[in-house]
């Protein structure tokens, strides 16, 4: 078994070479389900460190993008053995970039990090109308709706989704988080979301608190 603390630290330090090295060694040991789960958890904890360092202004947007890439690489490496690990999902998130907006880098980082944290993420893609969010939430009975946008017009689109949730009598059964460049406290209030974030890592943290 690999040194899990070392792996967590390497992910937190964004030391890609070290992370890859540890995971390759791990794969050679023909790991069982329990060990695979431990390794995934160690990576998740490493992402937690990335989020904390971002909040402390030690990491910046470029680091978050790189962290998303590193994490995707790690999960790709583990894929052949992941199938056998029956990890328990902590919650369901319906995620998408809202209508009128085609940006997806932030959304995709959030997705990687949320999945690493044990969420089942239903990614609708970009430029998604309110109806797409509503239908998916109904279909999968999600606990959380995550909306992303970069353009200022996305604010109105986010509000439309919340309004539609209300009209469908679903607003009280889901938590809503919005993320992206134009969001702040005022925007969050206007949209009627439960919380907002400008970085994926803290967004995941907020979601974790909701499903505790």
């Amino acid at each position: 078994m690999v040194d899990l603390k070392e792996l967590t630290q390497a992910v937190g330090e964004l030391d890609e070479e070290k992370v890859t090295g540890i995971l390759k060694e791990f794969l050679k040991t023909d790991p069982n389900e329990e060990d695979v789960q431990k390794v995934v958890n160690a990576c998740q904890q490493g992402m937690g460190i990335v989020g904390e360092l971002f909040e402390k202004n030690e990491y910046f947007v470029g680091d978050l993008i790189y962290a998303g890439e590193l994490l995707n690489g790690a999960i790709d490496l583990l894929k052949p053995v992941l199938g056998s690990a029956n990890s328990e999902k902590v919650g369901k998130i319906v995620l998408g970039t809202v209508s009128g907006d085609l940006h997806d880098i932030g959304k995709n980082i959030f997705k990687s990090m949320a999945e690493a944290a044990g969420f089942e993420v239903y990614d609708l893609g970009v430029d998604q109308p309110a109806s797409a969010f509503i239908e998916k939430v109904k279909e999968v009975k999600a606990e959380i709706v995550g909306m992303s946008g970069v353009l200022t017009l996305s604010i109105e689109s986010m509000k439309n989704v919340v309004d539609e949730l209300k009209e469908n009598g679903m607003r009280d059964s889901v938590k809503v988080i919005i993320g992206g460049n134009p969001v702040n406290k005022d925007v969050c209030e206007f949209v009627g979301a439960d919380d907002f974030t400008i970085n994926a890592a803290s967004g995941v943290k907020i979601c974790q608190q909701w499903v505790k």
């Binding site: 890609e16 947007v61 470029g62 680091d63 993008i65 890439e69 880098i105």
Partner: peptide, 11 residues
Amino acid sequence: GIKGLSIDIRR
């Protein structure tokens, strides 16, 4: 692009 350069700067 934003993603490629973020990665290159680290790698």
